[in-house]
Design a protein around this nucleic acid. Sequence first.
DNA 1: GGTCGCAACTTTATCGACAATTTCAGGATT
DNA 2: AATCCTGAAATTGTCGATAAAGTTGCGACC
Lengths: 239, 239
Amino acid sequence: MTYLRPAVGAPTASPPGKTLMSDKLQSLGISVYHEIRQDILMARLPPSQKLGLKFLSERYNCGASPIREALNQLTVEGWVVRIDKRGFFVADASPEDFADILHNRCFIEGEALRRSIALGGAAWEEEVLLTHFRMSNLDRREGDPSSADVAAWETAHRNFHKALISACGSRLMLENCARLYDLNIRYRVLARRKSHTSRRVSDEHDEIKTLTLRRDADGAVDALVRHYLATGDFLFPKD
Amino acid sequence: MTYLRPAVGAPTASPPGKTLMSDKLQSLGISVYHEIRQDILMARLPPSQKLGLKFLSERYNCGASPIREALNQLTVEGWVVRIDKRGFFVADASPEDFADILHNRCFIEGEALRRSIALGGAAWEEEVLLTHFRMSNLDRREGDPSSADVAAWETAHRNFHKALISACGSRLMLENCARLYDLNIRYRVLARRKSHTSRRVSDEHDEIKTLTLRRDADGAVDALVRHYLATGDFLFPKD
DNA sequence: GGTCGCAACTTTATCGACAATTTCAGGATT
DNA sequence: AATCCTGAAATTGTCGATAAAGTTGCGACC
């Protein structure tokens, strides 16, 4: 019996020749974890969806053990809710939850940016400049973007925001921000709106970048918070 | 075969008569999770300790599956580090890590307290008053406290700090604070100092309570932060 | 004498099977 | 007609066994 299985979405044909013994083959549980996480993030698994072990075993093509492993991790991270002896469910989504995420982002990421501006050195400045430039290039393309373009922009956008706060000096803060960022993506997908194409988001990013590199902490944090709040209003106008 | 096992630390004798079908019997994985977590918190499992499956299976008297389940959750929470295909280890501890926890506590819990003071109603005020009173009573006992006393004080202390911020209105903030609180306990235990008996901690708690109930947000937050920083200095004087 | 490589041992990751519990549907009773 | 049992089906939680790594120790070779 073998634990190997075809990579996700890849053709069943194996790569030529060597099996490459320990070459980066992560355990099954971890890769399934990433798959499920992505599916929840992208709302392919909608909120409150029942996550039966059998259903998931078939969907992700593996045994129940790796599935349980993945679900456990997702439970702690808040993507999945577990009801003892009754199974797993995709976490609910609500406007209140979204608002909570939004305000926590403003609060924590604002402080992280402030500290980065205070502590960041030349390498940090260059990283901010670079990631912003890369994102801007993708921004320029108009028309109907392919899904590959969207994915590329998503990555560039994440890298930019990550770069902004990367010099804050606190591991816990960075982890927190990363988690909040992902939680937020889910709501962006659920609202089925692409904020980056419909608003003048690139102007907002420009402003954040400029004020940050100018070491204007108050201005940069203010711009960042306004950027987030504007996105929030755009996604859920009523609130 | 049965999955039941004697409760932790309890005599092997089973309760008289009925097996009480679904009465609150949580799954094995979850109870083992709490046990391991407590052992790490209390440093009975020291930092960097290798957590072999066999070792844990015997220590907690169950199969490997519940152990893996528990370890996975602990990994996400940061208590345990997992190295792929190489096993699990108790997370390292370092002065830098402690400082990070400390500063994040000051920052987040300070804000949470501020919001509680702004939003809290009569029920919140009563809760703060009550939990403080209960802790104060335990504070008075001098001499050599039994371990039961210490545990009771620990609980009362947690409840007081929890009550302070309970009206902040943000689930994420409360979760964050709870996590940071626990992370901090570990360092208190590692430093093998009981801050509550060696300093005038009760005075600091009094001050926090009084300023909070007076709705003096700036003063209360300042007192809280000073309280944390003082504890930090006490535990790791050099930093 | 030190380093490299092979082989036995140890440990992790996974699977399939089994037990305990929940859920659901159908029928009897009030 | 609505409610409450009852039993079957489905699902979760757990275990022991197995495969595929990693680790260690010993001997050969430079």
